[in-house]
Amino acid sequence: MTDKNAVMERYYLDCRCMLLELAATLDRHDRAPAPSEGAQAADARLLLLQRSIEILAHPSARPDRTARILELLSRPVS
């Protein structure tokens, strides 16, 4: 299995790029004008992104961030 240093070596720049894209998207959202009257003011998708970022920042006992985010972004089963 690839060791921890090798993982960073191989994926750091990709992650840096994805992080900047996410930051730029949130900045773009912040700068955008409010939706026109009648449109939904608070977009639930933004909340989902924010909660996903919290999952990224807080590891659990085992490496399951991806599954936890996908659970968060899933519609209820029933």
Binding site: L13, D14, C17, L20, E21, A24, T25, D27, R28, R31
Partner: peptide, 17 residues
């Protein structure tokens, strides 16, 4: 040159700003 410099979307942001 997205991995180390700027992406098309970010550049469009800068043009707007």
């Amino acid at each position: 040159y997205p991995q180390t410099k700027m992406s098309p979307c970010r550049a469009a942001d800068m043009l707007e700003l």
